[in-house]
Simulated assay, not measured.
Amino acid sequence: MTVLVLAGTREGREIAAGLATRSVSVLASLAGRTRQPLKAGVPVRTGGFGGEAGFREVVADRGITAVIDATHPFAQDITERTARICREDGLPHLVVRRPGWTPEPGDDWTRIKAEADLAAHVPRGQTVFLATGPQRLDAFTGLEGRRVLCRRIDPAPGPFPHENGQWVVSRPPFSINDETALFALLGVDVLATKDSGGEDGRAKLEAARALGLKVVLLDRPPLPEGARVVETVEEALQWAEGL
């Protein structure tokens, strides 16, 4: 048995390492560079598959007998494609999705289904901080009259696409104190973020609570119909051991 782990999250890396310590043959796939590389002894491939044909080629060449999708909750395209290929080819397939965030006392949260819904929750003249990454910035439409800030980890290749907006270049991890100081310095009124879940991104939500900021949370895309889903690393390891 050889398990392909799409390991773009902390959980994915822990699953790959956990399988290796259990003497299960594993291949971890990472989309690119990661700040938390896998432990020595875990075979890793980096970069995309190059589409459906490339994915099937890796499966055949490496003798993959099962697939664990532990990608980011918003990696919808790769999750849907992986589920379909595994279903068509009869490969055992598991999706690992950590629980989303839930509000706590003092939080002022509003959930939206799509990026274009954000504008309705940011009054004109206010400053909105997009902690959603730059990949789908063009989907946040209708924000004229607002000051728009978007965080990215690398210098921008071009000008900010929104009028009266700017990039905020900084690299995680971010502490609660860091986030609180940043939001206060920039005069943020509204924090917009994805419901990614996990501990790594929680600091911005706690900073928003401390400052009394409104939070607009983008809901996760739906999971593939019929997919088997677990929430924890241990559940994923137990599933693999039972194959």
Rank of each mutant, 00 (worst) to 15 (best):
R152N: 00
A184L: 12
E179V: 03
V169K: 06
V169E: 12
H162Y: 08
P173I: 08
E179I: 03
A156Y: 02
H162I: 10
S175P: 07
D178W: 14
T180P: 02
P155S: 03
A184R: 12
L182Y: 07
P157R: 03
D154G: 01
H162L: 14
E163K: 15
A156V: 01
G158E: 11
F174A: 04
I176V: 10
L182M: 12
I153V: 13
N164Q: 15
V168E: 15
I153P: 00
P157E: 01
T180C: 07
A184D: 15
R171H: 15
A184Q: 12
V168R: 06
R152A: 04
T180K: 11
E163S: 13
S170R: 12
A181D: 14
I176K: 09
A184V: 04
F183K: 01
V168N: 05
A184C: 09
I176S: 05
F160W: 03
G158M: 02
D178T: 11
A184W: 12
F183D: 02
N164M: 12
S170A: 15
R171M: 11
E163L: 15
V169G: 04
N164Y: 13
E179W: 05
A184I: 06
P155G: 01
G158R: 08
W167L: 05
N177F: 12
P157W: 00
A181R: 12
E179T: 04
L182Q: 12
G165H: 08
N177C: 08
L182R: 10
P157N: 00
R152M: 05
R152C: 01
G158S: 09
N177K: 13
S170M: 14
W167Y: 15
D178C: 08
Q166K: 14
P173Y: 09
V168K: 05
D178I: 05
G165I: 07
N164K: 15
P161M: 10
R171W: 09
S170V: 06
P157H: 01
L185Y: 10
S175V: 08
L182V: 05
P155I: 02
V169D: 04
F183Y: 10
Q166E: 15
G158I: 01
V168M: 11
R171A: 10
A184Y: 07
F183Q: 01
P172L: 08
P157Y: 04
P159N: 02
Q166N: 14
A156R: 00
Q166I: 04
V169I: 14
